[in-house]
Amino acid sequence: MDEIKNLIEKGKKLLDEGKTNEALYYLQVAAKNNPEYADIHNYMGSALSILGRYDEAVKSFLKSIEINPRYIEAHVNLGLTYSLMGKIEEAEREFAIVEELEVSRSKTDKEIGFSAKAKIANLHKDIGLLYLEIKMYDEAIDEFRKALRLTPDFPDISFYLAKALSEKGDIDSSIKLLETLTKEKPDFISAYLLLGRCYYKIGDKKKAKEIWEEGHKIDPTNKKLSSYLKMLEGKDEL
């Protein structure tokens, strides 16, 4: 048993150091000698996923979960790998399982630790970004809202929600979110950029200019803000 533990620790250490192929070798040796150890298959899956061998990674994570169905990290890693493969429905299923497992650890949702909430929120954010990339705006909005219910103070998630709303065409809702975000996080330059674009889209170029000028005062070196302001002076289109 000590030999197996040493192989696992060696593999994990190499994985953390970025020596993925070497890590995989030690983990495969460990798995051959002790195939019913859930951690081994989870770490093997992580190594395989990093190497882009997604189908093999999925098999490893599924084996880990077969051994221990409540292994949260394996479900998380499986979901992330599905995301990389573009299998959004499968990824969502795994993230839903993660959320259920985290909640079941406590008597009420309020008792879930912040780190667990943050982890789940970031999973929803990642899925939302995938939906946003393929222009499935309603699904993206739903994922970002799920994330915000868990971590309402994460400004990047609010920003992505505003972006999804804007791209869907719900400019008013996007503006409302971004106005709040720029007040609460005045150094969040991306929010000024998007807020100005929203006003520009509805034809309020004066307000767009005010927003971009406000952002430019905070970050005078921002090239995109400078180009937007020059565009308004030249009456070019975005």
Rank of each mutant, 00 (worst) to 15 (best):
I4H: 13
I4Y: 13
L7T: 09
K13A: 14
G18S: 08
G18Q: 08
T20Q: 08
N21R: 12
A23E: 06
Y25H: 11
Y26V: 02
A31C: 05
E36A: 06
E36Q: 09
A38W: 04
H41P: 04
G45H: 12
S46M: 15
E56H: 09
A57S: 10
K59P: 00
K59S: 14
F61G: 01
F61N: 01
E66T: 15
Y71N: 02
A74I: 09
L78H: 02
S83K: 12
M85I: 09
G86T: 10
K87R: 15
K87P: 00
I88S: 08
I88Q: 10
E94P: 03
L101Q: 10
K107M: 10
T108Y: 14
T108N: 13
K110A: 14
E111S: 12
I112M: 13
S115K: 15
A116S: 15
K119W: 03
K119Y: 05
I120P: 08
N122E: 10
H124W: 15
I127K: 01
E133A: 14
Y137P: 04
Y137N: 06
A140I: 01
D142K: 09
E143C: 15
K146V: 03
F154T: 08
F159D: 06
A162K: 11
A164R: 04
E167K: 12
D172S: 14
D172K: 14
S173D: 11
S174G: 09
I175F: 04
K176R: 12
L178W: 03
L178T: 02
E179V: 04
T180N: 14
F188G: 01
F188N: 03
F188D: 05
A191T: 04
A191C: 09
Y192N: 05
Y192P: 04
Y199K: 02
K201S: 07
K209F: 01
E210Q: 09
E210P: 00
I211A: 00
E214V: 02
E214W: 02
H216T: 08
D219K: 10
P220G: 04
P220T: 07
K223P: 00
K223A: 05
L232A: 00
D236G: 08
L238N: 01
